[in-house]
Design a protein around this nucleic acid. Sequence first.
DNA 1: CGGACGCATCAAGATCGCGTCAAGACCGAC
DNA 2: GTCGGTCTTGACGCGATCTTGATGCGTCCG
Lengths: 232, 232
Amino acid sequence: MSSPGALVLVVEDEPQVRRFLRASLSSRGYRLLEATTAREARQLATSHNPDLFLLDLGLPDEDGVELTRDLRGWASAPIIVLSARGREEDKVKALDAGADDYLTKPFGVNELLARMRVALRHARAVPTEGALIEVGPLRVDSARREVTVDGVEVRLTPTEFKLLLLLARNAGKVLTHGMILREVWGPNATQAHYVRVQMAELRRKLEQDPARPRLLLTEVGVGYRLRDRWDD
Amino acid sequence: MSSPGALVLVVEDEPQVRRFLRASLSSRGYRLLEATTAREARQLATSHNPDLFLLDLGLPDEDGVELTRDLRGWASAPIIVLSARGREEDKVKALDAGADDYLTKPFGVNELLARMRVALRHARAVPTEGALIEVGPLRVDSARREVTVDGVEVRLTPTEFKLLLLLARNAGKVLTHGMILREVWGPNATQAHYVRVQMAELRRKLEQDPARPRLLLTEVGVGYRLRDRWDD
DNA sequence: CGGACGCATCAAGATCGCGTCAAGACCGAC
DNA sequence: GTCGGTCTTGACGCGATCTTGATGCGTCCG
């Protein structure tokens, strides 16, 4: 996982830039994965669990900022955005969405490499971030996207997992409908009903008695929270 | 997710830039320390243990890269370098010396703020709590929406909680019917009767003897207040 | 002493938010 | 294209919660 040999996922649709990065990085000992669309990126990210993302903002199928927000939700690896857009507003948006750094094209290879070293240095220094959350009978492994209740594995759909992870990372605290919608469905979502349906599904899978939940608690009129105290 | 209140040490010898940073940061709720030399910076860093460094490279008494390397050795807070030197080589040196980010002057305030947020996010030292109010036997945790009296948990409905939180945040002060109505029921509410009914309910749940309240006191003709003195 | 006023309490009806089910839309895999 | 899984959307019942009105009590003041 240290700098040489680190697995880098390059998300970039321009072949020229891809070739340039491939040459620069592999000669330095990095291993490379390449994606040209957000969809591909997600797939590779789940299947290969890379150590670092290099992300172009101008993807054909989805805004890069959205992809950033999504990845940041469950992947622990650092994200460096590479973009031709140099406007301050673009930088702020990307960084606030969860990017760890932002380089404006054109940039020098050495600067990129230096910033990659910084990012990987951080990742090593903060090992806690991704891995494992345990609350009561529940275990959530965000790197492996794996969930168990009392040791029994439970299969969750992507949305269910995102929702559960959000709750688990804030165990005990109440998350409002608005917060949940924004984090799981993106900033434009408004239908609080989404949350109810997915929550029902989650309960069906995680709770012994979905009608009398012990894990996923409702705060009427406000939102939901994951129970984090088990002293009974 | 921002971290207002973080303590930032600005190391910069040009008064103009210092003034600019002071204005930009303190208006955002950051607390500021200022140093104009490396020596001063070291002193303040030891004595005040800041959450973040903003570091100019061109210091009068020592090269900024050296200072970076030194700080990185023993201080855990992130270091953002601000420099007029835009050469790639300078960036690489500073980053490899231990800086977490590098901005070339002139830069936009918003970008700086965004990168500061990223740095502080990494540091993760942000407690984010502090949503706890304690008055006498009463404890109100707004993040968890949890209320206890003498350690015993009490379940409140949304309106009850809103009302109690309002009183708790203004413990000791008298809140008029009008204020309470506006805050809890919205700006158009007029029925002072709402308040009475909900207050009765609150007392039923919080007071030992609802008829002789010790917490939720009535100020006849004016409004209500939460008792905040407990020297009995 | 009696009436007016403000407050507390109770209970009943109306309302709101939640959980659930199910049908259709969408999407990726084959 | 078809198929299976997943997400969106709508409808509905139920219970919790809020609103509203009625009633009684205490205090202040005429």
